[in-house]
Measured scan of single mutants.
Amino acid sequence: MTEYKLVVVGAGGVGKSALTIQLIQNHFVDEYDPTIEDSYRKQVVIDGETCLLDILDTAGQEEYSAMRDQYMRTGEGFLCVFAINNTKSFEDIHHYREQIKRVKDSEDVPMVLVGNKCDLPSRTVDTKQAQDLARSYGIPFIETSAKTRQGVDDAFYTLVREIRKHKEKMSKDGKKKKKKSKTKCVIM
């Protein structure tokens, strides 16, 4: 069974824990209790493949930012979460993405942009803004509501699919490099 290491990042209060708990335990946590770091595991079937999701729910508070490099190193894919009623959390996505790329030393890291709290009427981040940002990053965008469960499975499952595509691409690139290195030079 394939294991996928997913990391949920975003500013404090955007609903990272609520999304994760909704996926794992099928219930909505409405009281806000700032996370330092929590880890969850769940076995699911995605596109006919049974897999184990190892999900790291991270601290959004700035005082825990020193811990970010460590979990970013171990993560295979990242859910970059903002709240649709919090423009600052949307603007912060850029910083999370840049930090992930720096730590992973790669421009090509599996990510999904997630606009959470889409059940709320007080939207300050337009869907088109988020779609445009995701398009500019070359990553999928999904709106979710941890409260109603809308888009929750889709967000995590899409990230797994992005990781699969990335692994497939990397193995193809690896095979191309191996083929090239088999060419021999004969000096007579």
Rank of each mutant, 00 (worst) to 15 (best):
L6N: 01
L19F: 12
I21E: 05
V9K: 03
D57G: 02
L52F: 13
C51D: 10
D33H: 03
G13L: 10
I21G: 07
D57N: 02
Q61Y: 07
V29H: 12
G48I: 06
G12Q: 12
S39V: 05
A11H: 08
C51H: 14
V29R: 02
N26I: 06
N26P: 06
I36R: 01
C51E: 09
I24S: 06
D57R: 01
K5N: 11
A18E: 04
L23R: 14
G60Y: 01
L23V: 10
Q22K: 13
T50M: 10
I55F: 14
Y64S: 05
L19I: 12
D33V: 03
G60R: 02
A11V: 13
I55T: 12
E31H: 06
E63D: 10
A18K: 04
G48W: 06
P34M: 04
K5M: 03
V7T: 13
E62D: 13
G10S: 04
D47I: 04
V44D: 13
S39L: 05
T35P: 00
T50R: 13
G12C: 10
E31A: 07
Q61C: 12
D54H: 14
I46P: 09
F28K: 00
L52R: 15
Y32W: 09
L6P: 06
L56E: 14
Y32G: 01
F28A: 03
Q61M: 11
Q43H: 11
S17Q: 00
Y64R: 05
S39C: 10
T58W: 03
F28Y: 11
V14G: 11
A59E: 02
G48R: 10
Y32V: 04
V7R: 15
L52S: 15
D33M: 02
T20I: 07
K16P: 04
L53A: 12
D33W: 04
L19V: 13
T58A: 07
G10K: 02
L6K: 01
T58M: 01
V9T: 06
D38F: 02
Q22D: 15
L56P: 01
G48Q: 11
G10V: 01
E63M: 06
C51T: 12
S39Q: 08
T50Q: 11
G13A: 13
L53V: 13
Q43Y: 07
Q61G: 09
I21C: 08
L6I: 13
G15H: 00
K42V: 10
E3M: 10
T50I: 10
T20N: 07
G12L: 07
R41C: 08
A11N: 06
L19A: 15
Y64C: 05
E31Y: 07
R41G: 08
V8L: 09
G12P: 12
T35H: 00
E3I: 09
A11G: 11
D38A: 05
L53G: 09
Y32T: 01
V8M: 06
R41I: 09
P34W: 00
Y4V: 12
L52T: 15
D47V: 05
